[in-house]
Simulated scan of single mutants.
Amino acid sequence: MEFTTGGRLEIRISTADVGKRVSVRRLNPSVGSSAGSAERFTDTVGVLTSWEGGVLRITRRTGEIVTFAESSLVAGKVVPGAPPRRRGPAATVRELQETAARGWPARETERLGAWTLRAAGGFTSRANSVLPLGAPGLPLPEAVDRVTAWYAERSLPATVQVTTGDPEQDALLDAELAGRGWTVERRAVVRTAALAPIADTSAPTDHVRLSRTADEAWLRAYGRAGGAAEEDALAVLNGGPSVWFATVPGDSGGEPAAIARCVVDGRWAGFAALAVGPDHRRQGLAGQVMARLAEQALSEGASAAYLQVETDNGPAGALYDGMGFTTHHAYHYRREARP
């Protein structure tokens, strides 16, 4: 990496470069000044996610987040992203499940072997269900009993996200839950696509506003907090490696015409919360919002897109078909039977 001009190290980035792909060099605080340059310095390439209070946060392509003090920065520059790939992405079910969990994080988690128990005050099933990615480290009946008790302690119904037709472990789990009378709540699919074609649109996107946080107007347009406390909803919505909220303002400062959310995590851009106001439908706003978010994700080095949609949402399915999304895998939720 070349950071010098005339032999001098230079810092050529600032807080104005948040959201851009950067290359930085910083001092390694654990190494003394007598060490060679290879030991004294650490280089990092990724998206400058934030620079606040004298602390920088950079998200690498792998999704790893590197945090360090501004005082340790000795050089830095903005670097161009890799050319976007236009082919559909290849990924394992586990990779997508783990990526989606990071992009919609629960407020509280606990490990049970290879299972992750998640809770967020009841805000969405995704953030309030078990994500089983292997064996729980206990006999299956005992593990389910542990899950039931954990959610009861939080006054939440025990819920498990079960991947359909994936490994035998999931089939055994589904059979165990069904035998206990746990009901299927919803069926959904994870869909993937190449990211670059989503950004291709002949319609303008400069009217789509991007923000790092969801404001009150965005939340009202989203309208899915339900009985969950606002702090629970905000913790989930604002969580993730590099989160963006898109808004198309309504007429004369009214409610937003369209909204959506995107989280960039390494090569993946995860889309969610796409909504268009009833008076603004069939105007192409959904595609424009997705395109603007895709542009941002491409600039941060992402190349693939994913989203989750319920199988009975026909209009959304048709929209995503037109954007090139194809089904990667399916899942459903099993919820405990309660008196």
Rank of each mutant, 00 (worst) to 15 (best):
F3G: 12
G7Y: 10
R8I: 05
R8M: 08
R8P: 03
S14Y: 13
A16M: 00
A16T: 06
D17T: 09
K20W: 05
R25E: 15
R26P: 07
R26D: 07
S33T: 12
A35T: 00
S37E: 11
D43M: 09
T44C: 13
V45G: 10
V47K: 10
R57K: 15
R57H: 10
T62A: 08
T62M: 00
T67A: 14
S71H: 13
L73H: 04
G76E: 03
P80Y: 01
G81L: 05
R87P: 03
G88K: 02
P89T: 07
P89L: 10
A90H: 13
A91Q: 05
T92H: 06
R94I: 10
A101I: 05
W104H: 01
R107G: 04
T109P: 06
R111C: 08
T124G: 03
R126F: 02
A135K: 09
A135V: 02
P139R: 08
A143E: 11
V144R: 11
D145I: 03
T148Y: 02
T148E: 13
A152G: 06
A152I: 00
S155K: 03
S155H: 04
S155A: 11
P157L: 01
V160C: 09
Q161I: 01
Q161S: 14
D166E: 14
E168R: 13
Q169E: 13
D170M: 15
E176A: 12
A178V: 05
R180F: 08
W182G: 07
R186D: 11
R187F: 14
A188D: 11
V189P: 07
V190P: 00
V190M: 07
L195D: 05
S202E: 15
S202V: 09
P204W: 04
P204Q: 10
T205C: 06
D206M: 06
V208Y: 06
L210S: 06
S211T: 14
S211E: 12
E216S: 07
L219K: 05
G227P: 15
A229I: 05
E231L: 09
E231Y: 07
D232W: 04
D232L: 09
L234C: 12
G239A: 00
G240S: 05
G240K: 00
S242T: 07
V243F: 11
P249G: 14
G250C: 11
G253Q: 14
P256R: 15
A257E: 09
A260W: 10
R261V: 04
V263H: 00
V264P: 00
G266H: 01
W268Y: 13
G270R: 12
G270F: 11
P278Q: 04
R282A: 11
Q283R: 15
Q283K: 14
L285F: 15
M290E: 02
A294M: 06
A302F: 08
E310H: 13
N313Q: 13
G314P: 12
A318E: 15
Y320Q: 04
G322T: 05
G322I: 03
H329D: 08
R335T: 14
P339G: 14
